[in-house]
Each structure stands twice: as structure tokens, then as C-alpha cells.
Simulated scan of single mutants.
Amino acid sequence: MYVPPQFASTDPSHASELIRSYPFASLISVDDKGLPYITPLPLHLLEEEGRWLLLGHCARPNPHWRYLQARPQAVVSFMGPQAYMSPSVYPDLARVPTWSYLTVQCTVQARLIEHFDDKDRLLKHLIHEHDPAYAQQWRGLGEDFQHKMMAGMVAFELEVLDWQCKLKLNQHRPESHQALYSTYAAGTADQRVLADWMVRLGLVGAIREEA
């Protein structure tokens, strides 16, 4: 991923927060023809013993798990909030539009999970994160149903080997920050989140104090 220095964050709390807040990711592998193969799916971030693991699964008919088995290294991309940025935020006219966004890209090493108990532990993490109330319903469906459902999927752990976090909020153009913040703070849900990140990164701290 292209990350100009002004947009790069090396703070792991930024990356982990974005992953947890926007867990629906793109898993990117190389297929048997040498082309990118992409599966959109939710992933759960597990931090243990200094490692980051991304937990997920795909349908058994999806060939992606076979590509992970043959070529375990892959890329995972998480897209956070994003919004158009109008050139009207600049005090001068010689400017062009752009786009603001927050994203995390991870290089991962895959390990397939086939044992029922291991799949069950993985699903507990996913259910707890997205729908805790469903846990009781899932248990009530019985082992026969659970085994049938789990046989139709392939679960995996993706160990994060490296990550990049890009926070593109026009940091290098301070003359735009006040107008950009005001626009985003009054805008869509994504724009409001971007406005909050501008405050968090210290781009417009004084503005929030005056509001």
C-alpha cells in the first residue's frame, strides 16, 4: 500500500481500533493462475502473547481456503470511514478535490482450522463480537446441527506478520483543517467519524474547545 509519510501511523492502537470498528475486510490471496483472489468477510482481531491473530472462515465450496493452504501468505485490507473532500476547504482556488479515508492493511500467515472444538472456539469469538444474544440460540440447535454447519465451512487463523495504517486527513495542508473539520462534523456518519479522528490526531484540537 502506498503510504506517504504524512499519512502513516505507527501507533498500534490506531490500527487495532480501526480493525475492531470496521471488521468486514477483504482477504486477498493468489489463485492457481497467479491472479489476485478476493473474499470479503468479517474477521475478529485476537491479541495474545504479543501476537495479532485474525480469525475467520469461508464456505467450503469457496476455493479461497485451498489457495491459503497452497500459499499461506496473504493480504488483508480493512477500510474504515471514508468521504469526499471538496477543494472548497482551501482559502485559495488553485486546488483539486481528493478523498479522505482511514485504512489498515495486514500481511498475514494463514493456518487452517479443521477440528470441531477449535472451530467452536473461533465461532465463539465471532458470535461474541457481532451478536452475543445468538450464543444461546446456537447452543440450543444441538451438536448434530452444529457439526453439519461446521462441516460446510473452513476456518482459519491469520497471524499478522506486518501491518500498515494509513490515516489520510489532509495533514500536510493545515490551511484546510478548520473548514474540513466543520464540513465533516456536520456531515454523514462517516464524515463525523473522520472529524473525530481529526481531533484525536491534534489537527483541530482548538476548534473542539471553542465549540
Rank of each mutant, 00 (worst) to 15 (best):
F156G: 03
K124Q: 11
S9E: 07
P72M: 11
K119A: 03
M153E: 08
A25H: 03
A195Q: 04
K119E: 00
F156D: 00
A59R: 11
S29T: 15
I207A: 09
F116H: 13
L53Y: 05
R173Q: 12
M149G: 04
R173H: 12
A195C: 10
Q164E: 14
A206W: 12
V75D: 00
P87G: 12
L123P: 01
D120P: 00
L180A: 05
H14E: 15
H128D: 07
H172E: 15
R66N: 13
A151E: 13
A151N: 14
S26C: 09
M150H: 04
H130K: 05
F116D: 09
Y37K: 11
D118E: 13
P91F: 08
T183R: 13
R51L: 08
R66S: 15
E17L: 09
K168V: 02
N62K: 05
Q109L: 01
D11Q: 11
G202N: 10
G205M: 14
D120F: 15
G80S: 08
L93D: 15
Q73C: 07
K166W: 08
F156M: 14
V160Q: 00
D31I: 13
H177D: 10
R121E: 10
C165P: 04
K148W: 14
C58Y: 13
N170E: 14
S176K: 00
K168F: 04
V104W: 04
L203K: 01
V89I: 15
W99M: 08
H125A: 09
I127A: 01
E17A: 14
R208H: 10
C165N: 12
V193P: 00
S86K: 07
M85Y: 00
Q73Y: 06
V160E: 00
E129M: 11
L194W: 00
P36C: 03
G142I: 11
D92Y: 13
E47I: 12
L126G: 03
S9H: 05
F145P: 00
L158S: 05
N62W: 11
L158I: 04
T107G: 00
A155E: 01
E114D: 10
R121H: 06
L93I: 15
V76P: 01
E159S: 06
L194F: 03
R51G: 00
A206P: 09
K124I: 02
R192V: 07
